[in-house]
Structures are given as C-alpha cells and as structure tokens.
Design a binder for these strands. Structure first.
Length: 293
RNA sequence: GCAUCGGUGGCGGAGUGGUCAAUCGCAACAGACUGUAAAUCUGUCGGGCAUAGCCCUACGAAGGUUCAAAUCCUUCCCGGUGCA
C-alpha cells in the first residue's frame, strides 16, 4: 500500500517548524520531527525546540523521547517514523515530516542496512586499530565498499566493519530499500525552504541572540551537570551539536577570563559555526533537489 | 625619558641566515555522507597563469652586511611590560 507523506526540509532558522504547523492545520496533518537533537529532553533552547503554544494544537512526534545520556540513532528514527506514519495514516491524517537532519530523511526514504545494529563492544575493539588498519581490513573483506568509502573517516570505517561483521558485506547503495529499511511504500511530497544567503545569516544571528537571552548558557550547564564530572560531559556535549560544544568550551574557559569579556567572542564563534552548519545543510538540499526533480 | 620584550598571511601563532609563499589552529570557500549525522571526513586557502608546474609581490618602514635575510646590524614608527 502506498502512503502519502509531506516532507519539509531546509536549513536551520529557515522557518520550517512554523510552516509545518500551517500545513498541518490546513491539511489535517500530524507532525513528525526529523531532528537528531530534539529527541532529547532538556535540549530546548539550543535546538530551538518548538513550544506548546507554537504547536497550535497540532500533535508533534519524536520530540523529548530520550534522555541526553541515551543514544538515538538513524535506525531508531527509521523504526519510529515508520510506525508513526502508519498510525497517522491509519487515523486518516497526513504525516508531515519536518526537520534539518537530512540524513534521517535519507535513511527513511532510501533505507538502511537491516540486521546490522550497533555493537558497542565491537566498536571499542576496532577503536584500538589505526585508521590504516581499519581501511586495510575493509579492503580485504569488502573491496566494493572500500572503493567508495573515505579512507580517513574512522567513524565510517568502523561502521562499515560493523556491517560487514553481521552481514558479510555492506549492501550496495540503492539496494537498501525493502527488504532493508522501511517496509512502507512512501510517496513523498516535498517542500524545500531554502532562503538566500544574506537572509539566512541574518535569521541565524537573530535567533542566536534570542537563544542566549533565553538562557542557552544555563541550559548547557545543566546538561553538562547531568554527567557528573565536568570533563566527562564534554565529549557528549560535542555530540549534541555545536551550541552545546562551543558553549561547553566557553564554560571551561570562563573561570580564567574576567567575567563578561568573552561573551561577544562566544557570539561570533557560535554564529560562524551555525553558518557552517547551515551550509552543510544547503549542500544536502542541493543533492535532494537533484533527486526529487 | 631609560630598560626590556615584541611587530609574520583575514585572525591567532610557528619559523630565527639558504630546502620559505612561510608548520599549525581558527575563519572563509567547495565537497563527501549506508544505524553517534548540528556528528564524522576530504579539498582549496598571498596574487597571476597554460595550476603535480611557472612567474610576481610579501614577514612594521627605510637603509646596510652577505653569494644568500622573515631570520644578522643601524635608524625610525607602533604595541606590551618594568623603572623613573
């Protein structure tokens, strides 16, 4: 059975969430968040999470479903989104997927290798090998994957070996649609929001200013405290995205700097990082536009 | 005013006679993306061109020493610090 869904993609601060709510109200929809960080409780300001009021009564899914010390992966997303799409469609409503994590869209629509779950022990084991050794191993076990993978990207290398260890080889791209990945036959309609450079930059800065005013720094402090020792949370902060990483670094420095003196530095550092991120998203969008036309 | 340390690419910061258009980091720009994805990784990054190469202009300014200087010497300008 074919299911219609509406996908709304765009870079950070482009106004996706508000647009999604409008579409939902107009077309009797429910919203599924496609955002790797909004799944975590406590990350509200840094992820620009939509507020209750802004939801205007439209049900939102996949927000606040994990603790920050838990891991949520693209595989989890595919499973959750698949389930939700069925449920929402079953109610006769339109599933609307909105978010900036374009990889999740990719994973849902094109599928991921099934039967190759994360294996933490195996990863720890592989972590001990040098990058060259990792690559050599892929080369001997799956030459096809070796030919396309980036030999320097340890994270990918390790994941590839993880897949190889449970499936024998990494399934070629494109072959990961059923029986791999989602079992639904999805018919996506796209809305791509891609504001011009200058406008987006201005929106990013305006939003950042607001976030700082709303207590972003305190939020990061709280998140970090959840991990106990200061040093322990830093690695996780990095995984939670640049606001958390940069502010975390700022908090580490703060004791040594005269108070307040570095706030404008923090702003410009964050603004630059946010813009970098927006550019990465734009590059996904470029690819996406090529594919959906 | 005297003493002292320093002035290097958009920024920070190496280099202290030749292999230097100058390690590295940041920013900028381009790109990749198969279960951590705001993560992770790659390329370019003084200017010009026929771009695995060649040419030009560069290490505060002006002179000087040397076959050869960002590197040594002199004077000047600017900044930090100490003493008056």
């Amino acid at each position: 059975m074919a299911l219609s869904i509406l996908c709304i993609a765009g870079p950070t601060a482009s106004g996706k969430s508000a647009r999604a709510v409008e579409e939902a109200l107009a077309r009797n929809g429910e919203i599924i968040s496609v955002d790797s960080r909004q799944v975590y409780r406590g990350l509200d300001i840094g992820t620009e999470k939509i507020t209750k009021e802004e939801m205007r009564g439209v049900p939102h899914h996949l927000i606040d479903i994990r603790e920050v010390n838990e891991i949520y992966s693209a595989g989890d997303f595919v499973a959750d989104a698949t389930r939700l799409i069925e449920e929402i469609s079953g109610r006769g409503k339109l599933p609307i997927l909105v978010g900036g994590t374009h990889f999740y869209f990719d994973a849902l629509l094109k599928g991921l290798p099934a039967g190759a779950a994360i294996n933490p022990e195996f990863r720890t084991e592989l972590e001990k090998l040098s990058t060259e050794e990792l690559y050599a191993r892929i080369f001997s076990e799956d030459a096809r994957r070796a030919s396309e993978i980036d030999p320097q990207n340890r994270r990918r290398l390790i994941r590839a070996l993880e897949i190889i260890s449970s499936l024998g080889s990494v399934p070629p791209r494109g072959s990961t649609t059923p029986p791999f990945g989602t079992r639904l036959n999805l018919v996506p309609e796209w809305i791509v929001i891609n504001p011009p450079r200058e406008e987006l930059r201005a929106r990013i800065d305006a939003r950042l200013k607001q976030a700082l005013g709303r207590g972003l720094i305190d939020e990061v402090r709280h998140v970090r405290e959840k991990f106990g020792l200061p040093g322990q949370g830093d690695e996780r902060l990095n995984e939670l995205g640049l606001e958390y990483k940069i502010v975390g670094e700022f908090l580490n420095l703060e004791v040594e700097l005269p108070s307040g003196s570095s706030t404008s530095k923090l702003f410009s550092a964050l603004s630059a990082k946010l813009w970098q991120y927006a550019r990465h998203q734009k590059s996904w969008l470029k690819k996406l536009s090529r594919e959906i036309i």
